[in-house]
């Protein structure tokens, strides 16, 4: 039995072989090393995403030095609030221990972010103050101890 192979077939086969090997060669150089290790992405990118430095240290780091504040705070409603909620990012202060590296909040507006009267806040969620009526002109921390706000300063 004789097979007749048209002359254009071998030529096409060669062209295909060249294109495919060129494609495979390009792919080898263009696709990054760890691509496809876990899925359709560069696995090394997981490491990249771990790299950024933290700015918030977590309150465990605060309590290593400020045990007294932990004890004060633990007594009532503010016990669930972490230090950095009010004091802002603390990692710089944890490293340097300098007072200027931590934010010391004050002012009616700051406390008001949580405690100002608003219809969207549930009464059970937060104790609310009408800032327009409650001791207008005074700073909250003149009367309230910021770490134990339920106690009045003498």
């Amino acid at each position: 039995m004789k097979f007749y192979i048209p002359p254009q077939i071998p030529r096409l086969a060669i062209a295909f072989a060249i294109f495919i090997s060129l494609f495979l060669l390009l792919r080898h150089f263009l696709v990054p090393d760890t691509f496809g290790k876990y899925g359709h992405y560069r696995a090394a990118s997981l490491i990249d995403n771990e790299q950024p430095e933290i700015h918030y240290s977590g309150q465990e780091a605060c309590f290593k030095c400020h045990q007294n504040i932990e004890d004060k705070k633990a007594q009532d409603v503010h016990s669930e609030i972490h230090c950095e909620t009010c004091h802002g990012p603390g990692e710089k202060h944890v490293i340097s221990s300098k007072a200027e590296d931590i934010f010391k909040p004050s002012g009616r507006e700051f406390c008001g972010k949580c405690h100002a009267l608003n219809a969207a806040k549930l009464k059970s969620a937060v104790f609310q103050i009408d800032l327009e009526k409650h001791n207008v002109g005074k700073n909250c921390i003149e009367c309230h101890n910021p770490h134990q706000p339920w106690e009045m300063k003498k």
Binding site: E50, Y56, G58, H82, T85, V126
Partner: peptide, 18 residues
Amino acid sequence: YHRLKKGLAPACMEVCPT
């Protein structure tokens, strides 16, 4: 993700007062 990998809570959850 960088905090989760260090065993810390995400920043928004760390500071949420309620």
